[in-house]
Computed example of a mutant assay.
Amino acid sequence: MTRQTISHWPAPPAGWPAELRQDFAAGAGRGQVGSRLVSETDRVRVWSLSLRPGERIGFHTHVLDYFWTAVTGGRARSHYADGRIAEVAYEPGDTQHHTFPVGAFMIHDLENIGETELSFTTVEFLDSANAPLPVSDL
Rank of each mutant, 00 (worst) to 15 (best):
Q4H: 02
T5V: 03
S7N: 15
S7L: 13
P10Q: 02
A11K: 02
P17Q: 00
P17W: 01
P17L: 01
E19N: 04
L20C: 02
Q22I: 07
G31D: 08
G31Y: 03
G31T: 04
V33L: 04
S35D: 10
E40Y: 04
D42R: 08
V44T: 14
R45C: 06
V46T: 12
V46R: 07
W47N: 10
L49K: 05
L49S: 09
R52G: 15
G54W: 15
R56C: 13
F59N: 03
T61I: 14
H62S: 08
D65H: 11
Y66I: 00
Y66N: 11
V71A: 08
V71W: 11
G74I: 06
R75C: 12
R77P: 15
R77F: 11
R77D: 05
R77K: 05
H79A: 15
D82E: 14
G83K: 01
R84E: 12
R84G: 06
E87C: 12
E87I: 10
V88W: 13
E91C: 00
T95L: 10
T95K: 02
Q96S: 03
T99G: 10
V102I: 02
V102W: 05
V102T: 14
V102H: 04
A104C: 04
M106L: 12
I107G: 00
H108E: 03
E111S: 15
G114F: 10
G114S: 03
T116N: 09
T116P: 06
E117I: 08
T121A: 13
T122K: 09
V123W: 04
A129V: 00
N130W: 12
A131Q: 15
A131G: 09
P134C: 12
S136Y: 09
L138N: 15
